[in-house]
Design a protein around this nucleic acid. Structure first.
Length: 109
DNA sequence: AACATGACTTTCT
DNA sequence: TAGAAAGCCATGT
């Protein structure tokens, strides 16, 4: 397996997250068949162009919070999620038990 | 090969 | 519940 293949696997999983739902980095990695590669998911998303169609904003960390990036687009990410109906609580966190997306079958094609 | 870095997680206080 | 420390794994120097 080549490094670029893992990128594709991860992006396919992120593409499959429906609006109004989210997935943690670790969950995306596992769904892509790459357990323990949560940080790799972050790396892949970091390399995406700003105008990409990939719904990167639906990927959040295990705490239910938004991970801080180099270029602080965290506000944009939060706005997009709120627009999809995801409610952040007073501590800036959202309920993963309610809004986490659980892919039933591995994404192919 | 060794060391540092990062859109992460888990565990311990 | 929040914050610190340690673990993890791919990449780049």
């Amino acid at each position: 397996m080549q490094p670029s293949d893992r990128y594709v696997l991860i992006l396919r999983v992120v593409e499959a997250i429906p609006p109004g739902h989210v997935m943690t980095y670790a969950a995306v990695a596992e769904a892509a068949g790459l357990p323990r590669r949560a940080r790799l998911v972050g790396k892949v998303l970091a390399d995406l162009p700003a105008e990409t169609a990939i719904p990167w904003h639906r990927v959040i960390n295990a705490s239910g919070r938004l991970s801080q990036r180099r270029d602080a687009d965290v506000t944009l990410q939060r706005h997009r999620l709120e627009q999809e109906g995801l409610p952040f609580d007073a501590t800036g966190r959202l309920n993963l038990d309610l809004y986490a997306h659980h892919p039933s079958s591995p994404p192919s094609t």
